[in-house]
């Protein structure tokens, strides 16, 4: 925590709180999709539940941002009343670890669109592996599971990766990120 500035921590924590609410709001959307398509419904939009780790990491660019933000968001979600209860904190940590692994593989040096999409996909892979053991995908047919896996990973790449980047870039335009890594990078590009 030594090389983190306090404002980075507070901003990360605020982002987590905001997205905890967003995460809760998307649960009913998931349920509707499940109603239409069966268990795979959640996987289509699963990326939304990784988005804070991508956004926090993209804005702050410090090791731990993805993991911590996702963990805090999950904890707040539970405190606000998510039916899954404390188990969700563990799911959150694992998703966060997945995204974190994506950034760690670039040694926290690259934050372009591909890296963000890759981190979103890693979050999908990790969360799917955890889900496989925890929520019983084992009982489902192999082909169906594969389809679920693919949609979750794609959703991670598109919603969390592409969507997270678009939202962060829109925020950077307002100028409020000027003292964070993302804002500084934009300014350098602008100057060049």
């Amino acid at each position: 925590m030594k090389n983190w500035k306090l404002k980075e921590i507070v901003v990360m924590s605020v982002l987590s709180v905001v997205f905890a609410v967003v995460y809760l709001a998307f649960l009913p959307v998931g349920k509707v999709l499940v109603g239409f398509f069966g268990p795979i419904g959640y996987d289509f939009i699963f990326g939304i539940w990784f988005i804070v780790s991508i956004i926090a990491a993209y804005i702050i660019r410090k090791p731990g941002a993805a993991f911590l933000s996702e963990t805090i968001a999950a904890t707040v979600e539970v405190l606000l009343g998510n039916a899954v209860g404390p188990m969700l904190i563990i799911s959150g940590m694992i998703q966060g670890l997945g995204a974190e692994a994506g950034f760690a593989l670039t040694r926290y040096r690259r934050y372009d669109l591909w890296t963000l999409m890759f981190a979103g996909m890693m979050a999908g892979v990790f969360s799917f592996a955890w889900g496989y053991f925890q929520s019983g995908f084992a009982a489902l047919a192999g082909g169906y599971v594969l389809l679920m896996f693919i949609s979750r990973v794609l959703s991670g790449a598109l919603i969390a990766g592409v969507g997270g980047k678009a939202l962060s870039d829109a925020l950077a335009k307002t100028g409020v990120l000027s003292s964070f890594a993302l804002g500084k990078e934009k300014r350098k590009k602008h100057a060049a």
Binding site: L6, K7, V10, V11, L15, V18, L167, L171, V176
Partner: peptide, 24 residues
Amino acid sequence: YRRFAVPLLAGAIRKAERTAVAME
């Protein structure tokens, strides 16, 4: 969603930064 998210998050980030300065 985007039109909502940007002012909400921008306001929150600015406030968060101020809070951090106040704490220090």
